[in-house]
Write a protein that binds this DNA or RNA. Sequence first.
DNA 1: GCTCTCAGCTTGTTGGTACAGGTTGAGTTG
DNA 2: CAACTCAACCTGTACCAACAAGCTGAGAGC
Lengths: 243, 243
Amino acid sequence: MRAESRYRQIARTLRREIQEGSLPQGGQLPSEKQMEERFEASRNTIRLALGMLRNQGLIVSRPGRGHYVQDVVPEIFYATRSRGGPGGFNEPNLAGLTLEELQLLSANSDIAPRLRVPEGTMTVVRHLHRFAGDRSGSVSSAFYPMDLVEGTPLMLPEDVESALEVLMDHGHRQVGYVDELETRMPTPQEASQLELTPGVPVLEVHRTDYSEDRPIRLVHTVYAGNSIRYQYEHGDLNAYHRD
Amino acid sequence: MRAESRYRQIARTLRREIQEGSLPQGGQLPSEKQMEERFEASRNTIRLALGMLRNQGLIVSRPGRGHYVQDVVPEIFYATRSRGGPGGFNEPNLAGLTLEELQLLSANSDIAPRLRVPEGTMTVVRHLHRFAGDRSGSVSSAFYPMDLVEGTPLMLPEDVESALEVLMDHGHRQVGYVDELETRMPTPQEASQLELTPGVPVLEVHRTDYSEDRPIRLVHTVYAGNSIRYQYEHGDLNAYHRD
DNA sequence: GCTCTCAGCTTGTTGGTACAGGTTGAGTTG
DNA sequence: CAACTCAACCTGTACCAACAAGCTGAGAGC
């Protein structure tokens, strides 16, 4: 078993052919039966190799159709975090945000410390689904301490243009935030919501918004890893006017 | 085939048991033979289920030993990006940075636009390997326009305490930066360098440092997804003194 | 007591077979 | 001509068998 196993060799060969472009993007791979002959291996071995490529996000497989070369970068949406207007740190390139569900929840040990409220404090949770073009871009949950949003449109099961503006109108102006980013493989539920092909990780962003006094919002967002590029700017970059 | 397939059922059952903690972290799963009996399925079917869990990063498999529950969060290293001293935006929690290789390279179409130099311009590339404790934390490549680093220690194959300080001493003070973050599955080479188990994605950060005049450095860093949490702070958070 | 061998466990790899169910296009039928 | 059927392909799932190779501990041999 010292030597590289057969299916890994086959995967490597196919990977090279894909990356070199012998097989064009979106193009169809030979059928498993054809590959059996080409590589002189059993269908089982071929399928192991194809499974590797699928898990690496290089191909997608369609039952009854065949295996296809995956578009390497389907489309990338930028989420730029930079100093905007007063209290505004926006995501201009991601649109199509819709409210999925509104929920009342008592803060658990994961939520409470970040919002700086006692465990068990009631919070309003707004679950959002954000589309980018015709693709699913992200799912997020925004947690608001109950006392901050009572009597505001955020308590209603309706879309809200800008939640931060609503909070500002009620005396809670955002003056800063902390983002924590991590990456991991999606849960099956997320894979289905974000329409992820196997082998695509997710980017999870935990954002805490602060007013001068206290945390005013916590947003957990999960992005499809293959269609998001997150961008942060810090410092004095006025001279550059980045396109 | 409408119904959920057998191996997916088995994977779901095991996943639930892992997440509920019936199987402790680091604990060993029953052997494949035992699972054959428990689930009344063939070894092949069991292995398909285990393969799913492995690709989701929930278990690791050791030949001759068995399958083990993966530590969900082995250890997390924070890389905080916040306004530090003059020109300093550091990563206090990641240490053990060593120079792997020094290279002269002409800027390609990926590098040149970000450094705002013509394609083909010579750049000095410093490949770094960063350990965190006894684990491999990240690999990175820093690109410097040749004319900026000529005659500085950055041209020498030696470790440098703080590259930004060296640049500052030669008249190029960092005043800001732009970070671009994305996530993807590792290349086989990265998986081996970072000692990644299957099913662990990487976080890739492209950072461009600017002086008042021009981009002075480009750093591509690849972090092991299971041991990094990236953190950004923006705005006025003085009142909070986050621990 | 110490070391060394090896049987017996484990997972990894490869071969085979069979059938289910999606997809397509040729050919038939109205 | 249009719709429909169906054979022939495709991948997905499930089973069986065999051998390779890593690992461990019991027991033999020193």
